Computed example of a mutant assay.
Amino acid sequence: MNQASSSPAATSSRIALVTGGSRGLGKNAALHLARDGVGVILTYVSNQQAAEQTVAEIEAGGGRALALRLDLGDSRSFAAFADVVRSSLRDSWGAERFDYLINNGGMGMHASIAETTEDVFDQLSNVHLKGTFFLTQALLPLIADGGRIINTSSGLARFSLPGYAAYAAMKGGIEVLSRYMAKEFGARGIAVNTVAPGAIETDFGGGRVRDNAELNAFVASQTALGRAGRPDDIGAAIASLVKTENGWINAQRIEISGGMFV
């Protein structure tokens, strides 16, 4: 595992691990968590420069962060990744456990059922569903009792738009998995919830919602609050969910869509 950047060794009261934290919603969540005084381990797949920039942004704001490489599509690497996390916690924070696991990393795909290949389907499954399942399994011994897990779904698991069948099916699986995690991890006081963003203005899926004015206007017209979502809408909600006062929220699907298709 490649460590992109790290802070000097120090003790932090709370630490979060955010997969896919170098860009998009993951980056935004990492920034919001850091502003709340949470130390952040973020992961990236290939864009080390973006990961380093995110770490630098957090540290410039007085926070502590480090970035580790992780391929969510390769579950065989998870045991070794957990070992790197263990040593990174000790070296960078003087800690044995982290508090919050944000399973955010993923990939988008737009194709009809007729056009979806088996290879693409398997890739989506490996990253979103299998990746979330087995990464959580690998990291569970490192999550503190009383901690939190937030898994990322999508509004597309509730409403249906042509071209997203395979992607949405994986997210539907995440929602079921989250409830089972909440049940099984409850004895350790670990609360598990799902956040389901609506259409958000990011580079996800090629930046379609952000850059396509016609699509953006359509999303706004179908949203009760009259606009497409923004990254801060999601990052702020994730940071809020892990706060102590929200510890009784458990086993829930929380859609963050501004009221899309209500």
Rank of each mutant, 00 (worst) to 15 (best):
T194I: 13
V85L: 03
K130Q: 11
D233I: 00
T132E: 00
G146E: 01
Y44F: 14
I174N: 03
E115H: 10
Q137W: 03
A169Y: 08
L225N: 12
G147V: 06
L124F: 06
A196E: 12
R208C: 01
L17Y: 01
L129E: 08
D122R: 14
G146Q: 01
E115C: 03
E245R: 10
G226K: 11
V18K: 05
Q48C: 06
L156Y: 07
I249D: 11
L66R: 13
R69M: 07
S12P: 01
P8R: 15
Y167I: 06
G63M: 01
A10R: 14
V242A: 00
G146V: 00
D74F: 06
N126C: 03
L33G: 09
R230C: 04
A60F: 05
G147N: 05
Y44C: 01
L33W: 09
G205F: 09
M109A: 15
V120R: 15
R76L: 11
A79N: 13
S75A: 15
I256W: 03
G147F: 02
T202F: 04
I150L: 04
A187F: 14
T152G: 00
L177S: 11
M109L: 14
V219H: 08
Y180W: 15
Y167M: 01
E52V: 12
D91A: 10
V209H: 09
A236T: 15
N212R: 06
E184G: 13
S13Q: 10
G62Y: 10
N216V: 08
F81H: 05
T116I: 06
T19L: 00
A165E: 09
A187D: 15
P197T: 14
V85H: 03
A168P: 01
D232H: 11
L33A: 08
Y44T: 07
A169Q: 06
H128D: 02
I113D: 05
E115M: 03
L215R: 11
I143K: 02
L42G: 06
F159D: 03
G189N: 09
V120Q: 15
G235A: 07
N193H: 08
G39N: 05
R69P: 02
A79K: 14
R90G: 06
R179T: 13
Q53H: 13
G207R: 10
V127C: 04
E118L: 13
R90Q: 15
N103P: 00
A237V: 07
R23C: 02
I174E: 05
G198T: 12
S125T: 15
P162D: 08
G155A: 10
A16S: 09
R76T: 15
R188W: 09
I256Q: 05
N193Q: 07
G226A: 05
S88V: 04
L17F: 02
S13L: 01
G206W: 05
A10Q: 12
Q123A: 10
Q49N: 14
A50F: 06
F204Y: 11
F261L: 13
L135T: 08
R14H: 08
I143R: 03
A251Q: 01
E96T: 13
F159Y: 13
Y100I: 12
A67K: 02
D145P: 00
R64L: 04
Q49W: 07
A30L: 06
T19Q: 01
G189D: 11
V195G: 05
G63V: 05
R188D: 13
S5Y: 04
G73Q: 10
A34Q: 09
G131R: 02
G73E: 10
F78S: 10
F218A: 15
A196Q: 13
F98E: 02
F159W: 11
G146F: 00
L139Q: 00
